[in-house]
Amino acid sequence: MTTPRQHLADIFVELAGGNPDEPLDIPLLLTSLVMRSRELVGAYACGALVTLDVSPTEAYASDEGTRELVLGAHTEGQGPGPECRRTGRPVPRTDLRGRVARQRWPQYTPRALGLGYTQVAARPLGGHDHAVGSLTLFGSEDMPLTDEGLRFSQSLADIVAIALLRDLELNRSRTQTGQMERALISRLAIEQAKGVLAAQRSLSVDQAFVILRGHARTHRRKLTEVAREVVEGQLTL
């Protein structure tokens, strides 16, 4: 590879998500992935499909025509990109002019040929247990996909996948922290409300809880909200 060392190092930083103290810019990261893959793998064009948690699948590509091809493939559920994303396994280099491609992807293949591509291959983003997307690489007559290039493309996909998975985990952990705190605060309010109600009506705390729960059920309200209103004196039961 003729790429100077420092340039390569900068690209790795970019693909690893840049500064870890700043929030991950996912569109920027995936745009870098497709642009850098084309540059370093020596592919004619590159595209990527990504599905993160509950967000809709997004398509990125080194040019608009390729983006439409990749997105169309996703919508129709046909082509190497969606296949690779679904299985988490690489789709080997395939000749788009051959019979295999035409049979396997009847709508996709003529469109890809129309853009001047003669070869296609796909690499998963993330392992097969937790693939979050795929990287699709296109070769042409003048720029065929090489074995070395394809091996390298998997490494680039791996770096980006680690950054994406780490970001996902961070977000989940954030959500979990919030949930835990709400559950603990809610428990506090319910215990206090039991005490308030028990004192107001000379009941045991267990009897008070039955009344609280009963009120929440009949009025289809959250127990926590009812408890909070009792504690704050806005609701008398």
Partner: peptide, 9 residues
Amino acid sequence: QQAAGMVSV
């Protein structure tokens, strides 16, 4: 917490 509720009343 229960005791706090009772004492508040």
